Computed example of a mutant assay.
Amino acid sequence: MTLATAKSGDRAKAKHCAELLGTGPSIDELVPALSLLGERLARLLPGRLARFSGGEPPLVRIGMPMDCTLASIQADIETLASHALMAVGPAGLLMLATFEAAPVLRLIDRAFGGRGTVPDPLPDSFPLSAELLLARLEEALAEALTAVFGGVEEHKVRSLRRDTSLRYLNPFDKREELLQLSLEVEEPGVEPWSFSIAFPQSTLATVTATPRHPVRSLPRQTPDAGNEPYASVPVPVTAVLVDMMIGFSRLSALRPGDVLPVAIARSVPLQVDGRTIATGTIGEVEDRVAVQILQAF
């Protein structure tokens, strides 16, 4: 065996085998984690958004996680929008929040005593009042996400900068695969509004990681779902193929023959009482649509 000696002042760089280091989770593996993260966010965010709805916490609904890129996010936005680059923890793991102009301007009109009227046509840029509101929305989202991630300094979320152009914001490589989660905010008597957050795989894998060595606990007896009286209890299970948001004006204008383009998620969630219990892919068995389970938890 030959030993090679590095020159004085040089330090050899270690090279590690990919098989030993392992690779990060795939997007398919991260979809269930993002679904659970979204469910926790839907419970914690209303309290932070109450300041924008007259003190009453609104109802927050989450959409189905969708895989995307910066290019697809930009293509889905037809009008003015604000993109906020946010960082998680001291390491500065990045994520992106997107607020379209119409919901923001509707909130501003209501804050000044209006009924939530949106100017038509929409302006080419956000007024100062909108910039101030966007800063408060980002702060509320950061607080809720910090709580979702455990409320520790390691995962504290903060806003970095915002821009109406993803090109100038340049948050990630334009070809990087992202997972996007849409959230719809509902308040009594007013039109719902929505926004979205997108995570690179590396960020999502870190904030949803579980400890390698969990605290051991004494074994406990749990009911066996395969035995009576539980085995025969019917449980409604929903396979969510498409979960989309449509503006009320467009929804009210729908007519027979209209075509709505939809995107089918790569992993289809199976839900019981609104909670995701498994994910799978759509297929066919004996001429019937079927779901093949890929993950169950």
Rank of each mutant, 00 (worst) to 15 (best):
A42W: 03
V291M: 10
A14R: 13
S196E: 10
Y230Q: 10
V242I: 13
A290R: 06
S129P: 00
V60A: 04
R266K: 13
A111W: 10
F112Y: 09
T276N: 11
I62T: 08
T79N: 15
L30D: 07
T281N: 08
I197Y: 12
R162E: 04
A205R: 13
H16D: 06
F52M: 02
R48F: 12
S217C: 09
S125A: 12
P90Y: 04
G22N: 00
P57V: 07
A198R: 06
P188E: 15
F126Y: 15
P90A: 15
R216F: 08
V215T: 13
G151L: 01
P236K: 05
H155R: 11
V60N: 06
V233R: 12
D287H: 14
P32K: 03
T146D: 02
R106Q: 15
R162A: 13
F195S: 05
A265P: 00
I246R: 03
A102V: 09
M86T: 06
R40V: 00
L179K: 12
V104P: 09
M244P: 05
D28M: 07
R266Q: 09
G55F: 01
A14P: 02
R51E: 05
L93Y: 08
P234S: 02
A97V: 12
P103L: 06
A290F: 09
G63F: 01
V185A: 14
P192S: 12
K174N: 14
L254P: 00
G47D: 12
E100K: 11
R275E: 06
D273Y: 10
P119N: 07
R106P: 00
W193H: 06
F195K: 02
T79E: 15
V285N: 09
Q180C: 10
V152R: 02
G247Q: 13
E177M: 13
S82R: 09
E39W: 05
V215E: 11
D173K: 00
D120G: 01
P32F: 00
P229I: 11
K174S: 14
A296G: 11
L44I: 03
K156M: 07
P219V: 01
